[in-house]
Nucleic acid binder design. Structure first.
Length: 919
DNA sequence: GCAAGGTC
């Protein structure tokens, strides 16, 4: 019967030329396939015969290159000054084939005219579905016989025989819901992007001297729903760093040296933020230094190879290992792909299909001079090195993970980056099919005076995948052998101080992770958004691939933040994505989602425009105004207070910030960010010709203040001739009591932000009026006496006749204990029984509402740099054991004679009872 | 001169 059926022409269209070639090759079984040119040089046409469900077909196989059409405004709205940007939320838009795609369109028209069927081989994602409808529109435009019965969609998840033949036997209709979701996304992105970009560019560009831009005439201050949240991640981290308040902490470290080597024991409490508590516990340890081994645990540990490689992981690892930018990585990967050395580099998939012939890929690498031997071992069953790769849980149903497709040994044509990126792909692949590394780990816990310490050692038993994956390491460290119950005297027992550090700037790998997590961009576009921030001068990248915002980037984010909309956060995009998902499932109509989203963003746009003065004000902080009066009356000679002690180049002048509050700031801003903030209730302030007699380096001009009477406490005069040089006690007290006029809004996230002391002073660095040091205000000055900073209320419980209070961290009842140290013998205290908590408080302080601080945010510790804050046991003293015999050493190892107070140096007492200590 | 998404 089939023999009687007349052959029909079938036009097949793939999303890209490579897929057209692959699918055509599979379907034709590489027999009788002919290739000819189309109108576009990149999109070849393949022809062969094929039978679909008994129907003989002449197959014509060609491709597009991604989207065939673009969306833009009607001509009359395209010029920037053609309309009010607000109109762009409802101005008519049209879809059209751009000039560079016209040849592809013509090929489709030529071929579809003589076809009876159209089969769409686009990628199986939303964008692919949308492109399918673009192709349908072009083909139906010239062939009116094409309809739902003759237009089919082939859905395939991999370019392998079985999958392609299966797709061909199960042709379906195209999914309009998927395509609608993309239409909505395109329109929203266009309208939001164009309106905000035109608005902020025209508002700010010509009003400020934006020095970061090389070509100011071409400066575009773009806004995009992906680029701005990406910038937001960078700025937010930058603000976190700026607002970090270093906190000193203390920790006890212990080591033990024997014939077998050294073990370093870490205190299981980690760190204490209360100095007195740390000293007390340290003192108890020193007085009873005998260590008892409480636990010896040995176990086998495995270190697994990474999951198969997808695009984001390739970009992150190339950035981490080679410091290659994601944009450059994709360019190099594309070239390797084009040359046939690696598989398609834009893929979300991180698991191999069971159909993939992994052994064949390894076989191809056996001849490589560097890792060929490893590939041979992998294929040798006796070596036992093979392991089926893990499943990373992502599958875009279109492409396999990135893997080598051919042996590549370099050559003149290829750069170093091509070679090392190929090496990464191969080594990563070989690692994926290798067994994990095996190690034997030993954990030893010891008890000194009731405090627990632990040490661990590791021996690598089998390196396995680490032998080929040179980018990862797994350190081995030996510790001496210990037995349960064994006792010994530690070799060193030190009380060390450290300072909490702010987090690091975001690296490119971090930024990609943030974007991936928040759903900003796709695997194929993330690197574009990052590059755009650099091109737009919103951010810079240093040699370590760390990103910092430029003044322009920070100003824009700060401006929108001030207006109150979270336009720089990922939420807007996430909400939009969730709406689009509803469209793609058919739960919501495209028109409804479009209308709602555009209505909301237009309202937001109008409100932003209403508050544009806030954007302008923030820009004023960072940039000079264009055509500003050259008289510089704001910074006139009479306003200079003193020379800046920080940059020692410019003058510090009295001025008002944008909220109208007074400050003394360096004229070298923004290069120098030194600033002194004045009390909030200042009504008027004038620099006088009077010079302070005591403050140096002089001259420091006195300022005549007038305070709001109701803003200052009773007993203070509303008029005050004050000095900002550090000598003025009244000014200092007023700042402590009333605060300053600086910005108090917390911009940082994370635990440090909750302290309430965080101030983002418009990008300026604060100088304490009390001690003249930077990094804190006088209200946080460590030099001043204050008993309330760590105050916390405690509740007393009576349980079974035992006095307990709840731990501040884990709420575990903490029983009353008695100290047995020389200086505090008999004194009662509470401490958390959990070794993971830092809670410690003297009983007599409970009623005073003081206690230790809970764990604080920090990611790095710092060994003490101040010798007076570091003590340790004497070295080499065999007779040590009692406190009286212990010798203390400085950080540099210099012995300190006898025991002495860390605060005043007095050898007669410890710091916890020092009369000079601030509590 | 604007977005983001395909891909060459």
């Amino acid at each position: 019967m089939s023999g009687a059926r007349r052959q029909i022409n079938v036009l097949n269209v793939a999303e890209k030329p490579s897929v057209a070639r692959s699918v055509a090759t599979i379907l034709s079984r590489n027999q009788g396939m002919r290739m000819r040119e189309g109108r576009s040089p990149y999109n070849k046409i393949f022809e062969f015969e094929y039978t679909i469900q008994g129907q003989p077909c002449h197959m014509i196989f060609t491709s597009v290159t991604g989207h065939l059409m673009e969306l833009d405004f009607d001509d009359r709205f395209r010029k920037w000054h053609s309309c009010d940007p607000a109109q762009l939320f409802h101005a008519p838009v049209c879809k059209f084939v751009p000039e560079d795609k016209k040849n592809i369109k013509r090929t489709l028209e030529d071929e579809s005219r003589r076809c009876q069927w159209l089969i769409l081989w686009l990628d199986c994602d939303r964008e692919g579905e949308n492109i399918a409808f673009e192709v349908i529109e072009v083909c139906k435009g010239v062939n009116h016989h094409l309809d739902t019965r003759s237009i089919k969609r082939a859905r395939f998840s991999a370019l392998i025989d079985r999958e392609i033949h299966r797709a061909m036997q199960n042709l379906e209709g195209p999914n309009k819901h998927f395509a609608d979701a993309v239409d909505a996304r395109q329109e929203i992105d266009l309208r939001i992007g164009a309106s905000f970009t035109r608005f902020q560019t025209m508002l700010l560009k010509d009003k400020f001297v934006i020095d970061s831009a090389a070509e100011e005439r071409n400066l575009v201050l773009s806004y995009g729903p992906c680029q701005f949240p990406t910038l937001g991640f960078i700025v937010e981290r930058y603000w976190e760093i700026q607002s970090h308040e270093p906190e000193e902490f203390w920790t006890i470290n212990c080591s033990h040296k024997s014939d077998e080597g050294i073990a370093t024991f870490n205190w299981m409490r980690g760190r204490l933020f209360d100095y007195t508590s740390a000293v007390i516990i340290y003192e108890m340890c020193v007085q009873e230094p005998n260590a008892t081994v409480r636990k010896v645990q040995q176990q086998e540990k495995l270190k697994y190879p990474p999951y198969p490689l997808n695009t984001i992981e390739l970009e992150k690892r190339a950035s981490r290992y080679f410091r290659m930018s994601s944009e450059h990585t994709m360019k190099v990967a594309e070239e390797l792909y084009q040359a046939g050395f690696i598989s398609y580099p834009r893929t979300e998939t991180d698991s191999f299909s069971s159909e993939t012939d992994l052994q064949r890929i390894v076989q191809e690498q056996q001849g490589h001079p560097t890792w060929g031997l490893y590939a041979q071992q992998l294929l040798d069953p006796d070596a036992g090195l093979w392991r089926n790769p893990g499943n990373g849980g992502h599958d875009d149903k279109a492409h396999p993970p990135i893997h080598p497709t051919n042996l590549f040994t370099g050559g003149d044509r290829w750069s170093n980056d091509h070679c090392r990126l190929y090496e990464l792909v191969v080594r990563h692949f070989l690692a994926c099919v290798s067994k994990p590394a095996v190690g034997a780990e030993t954990i030893v816990e010891i008890d000194i005076a009731g405090e627990l310490f632990s040490a661990s050692g590791r021996v690598i038993l089998a390196r396995n995948y680490l032998d080929v994956y040179r980018f990862e390491s797994w350190g081995g460290s030996m510790i001496p052998t210990y037995e349960f119950g064994q006792q010994f005297i530690p070799t060193t027992l030190t009380l060390d101080s450290g300072v909490t550090r702010p987090p690091s700037l975001l690296t490119e790998a971090d930024l990609l992770s943030c974007m991936d997590k928040a759903g900003i961009g796709t695997d194929a576009t993330m690197h574009d958004h990052i590059k755009k921030l650099l091109d737009r001068c919103y951010a810079t990248k240093d040699l370590h691939t760390c990103f910092s915002p430029t003044n322009l980037g920070e100003a824009l984010v700060m401006g929108y933040d001030d207006i109150g909309y979270e336009l720089w956060k990922p939420n807007l995009r996430s909400k939009m994505e969730s709406d689009l998902r509803e469209v793609s499932y058919g739960y919501k109509g495209k028109e409804v989602v479009l209308a709602t989203c555009l209505e909301e963003t237009k309202a937001c746009f109008l409100d932003v425009r209403l508050n544009k003065v806030k954007l302008m004000e923030v820009m004023t902080i960072f940039f000079e105004r264009v055509n500003r009066s050259t008289g510089d009356d704001q910074h006139g000679a009479g306003e200079v207070v003193r020379q800046c002690g920080q940059c020692q180049e410019s003058d510090m002048v009295l001025k008002r910030n944008r909220d109208g509050n007074f400050m003394v700031g360096c004229l070298g801003y923004p290069q120098c960010r030194n600033a002194i903030w004045l009390p909030g209730p200042v009504l008027e302030a004038t620099v006088t010709t009077n010079i302070c007699n005591s403050c140096t380096p002089g001259p420091v001009h006195l300022i005549q203040f007038k305070f709001r009477q109701l803003g200052i406490p009773p007993g203070f005069s509303a008029n005050h001739l004050g000095c900002i040089g550090g000598c003025d006690e009244i000014l200092r007290q007023l700042i402590e009591i009333c605060g300053t006029g600086s910005r108090t809004q917390v911009r940082a996230r994370g635990p440090t932000a909750s302290s309430g002391n965080v101030r983002q002073n418009n990008g300026r660095e604060v100088t304490c009026i009390y001690c003249q040091q930077t990094g804190h205000t006088s209200s946080d000055c460590p030099s001043k006496v204050s008993g309330s900073r760590n105050a916390r209320s405690r509740v007393m419980n009576q349980e079974n006749g035992e006095t307990t209070i709840p731990c501040s961290s884990c709420r575990t009842p903490c029983a009353l204990r008695t100290a047995n140290t020389a200086n505090n013998r008999g004194r009662k205290f509470y401490s958390c029984p959990s070794q993971e908590c830092n809670f410690f408080v003297w009983e007599d302080n409970v009623n005073n509402n003081s206690g230790t601080r809970g764990p604080s945010y920090a990611n790095t510790s710092n060994s003490a740099s101040n010798p007076s804050r570091r003590v340790g046991r004497g070295r080499g003293g065999r007779s040590e054991g009692r406190a009286a015999d212990v010798t203390f050493v400085s950080a540099t190892g210099e012995p300190l004679s006898g025991r002495r107070c860390f605060v005043c140096g007095d050898p007669s007492h410890f710091a916890n009872v020092c009369p000079n200590r601030v509590t």
